[in-house]
Write a protein that binds this DNA or RNA. Structure first.
Lengths: 132, 132
DNA sequence: ATACATGCAAACACTTTGCAGCACA
DNA sequence: TGTGCTGCAAAGTGTTTGCATGTAT
């Protein structure tokens, strides 16, 4: 039985290309960065198509947006928790390995932590109800 | 002695108005929402001014952007950690009290957690060096 | 008096969408 | 064969910036 929440998609050359290239990028790229990599392989693939495919992946749950809150949205294929430390002054974003506890971030980077933000993503009760 | 990193500002009527209104909003508003509230009190204050003042506050450290990653940036006066749960399907954002541990989010909201993102903000080692 | 802040509008950056043609199932 | 996908360009959304004027210090 087909699930109601299954997203119907056709397998196109563009989709295959974008997904395989994007999947190989592990630096939470912006959509723009994905476009650039895609263009190296197939310059005929349009920007809108890349955006559309990234959004398909998010709907399907195979990609997420990583909120850094400055500039363009960042995408990642993995759904495992992400930890970042962002400088309020220069805007630089540091990757923090997930086993680093808060005090360790200061030690490792000499980073003065002033605050933090946590965002869980998933599916809310109401949407789960609609699916089942 | 004046600190090098002190941001020189003049106290203007606009700044006073925007900061006092914004400080009274505790629902991590978008800049747009702040503009609307400000306009109710003083419609002559321009949108650009609100953005500029919010950005001053971020530089000074008296406000932060809360990354929700969809739509407009959200601002908050407090720098205490924020916890949110966002539905991947409908986009709804739920506030999670900071003492709620991960499993409690599921219990409280019937929310299916698929992943998470953590962002620490503060000042990096290099910027701290420049200041001192 | 003068250097910074404001208001306006235009510019900018990022993303989505309308539409005609194309291609997968 | 037909419905969904693509590419292009235009529109949409959110934010920043240039400039002339105003104003706090």
């Amino acid at each position: 039985m087909t699930e109601k929440n299954e997203i119907k998609t056709r397998n196109t050359k563009q989709k295959e290309t974008v997904i395989s290239i994007f999947s190989a990028m592990h630096n939470h790229p912006t959509a723009e960065m994905v476009c650039n990599e895609v263009a190296k392989v197939d310059p005929t693939i349009g920007r809108a198509t890349v955006y559309r495919i990234l959004n398909y992946m998010i709907k399907k749950g195979t990609a997420i947006k990583v909120p850094i809150y400055d500039g363009a949205d960042r995408f990642d294929i993995t759904v495992k928790p992400h930890f970042h430390a962002k400088c309020r002054l220069c805007g630089k974003v540091m990757d923090v390995t997930s086993d680093m506890k808060l005090p360790k971030v200061s030690e490792a980077f000499g980073f003065d932590i002033e605050g933090g933000s946590v965002l869980y993503y998933g599916r809310c009760a109401e949407c789960l109800k609609k699916i089942n």
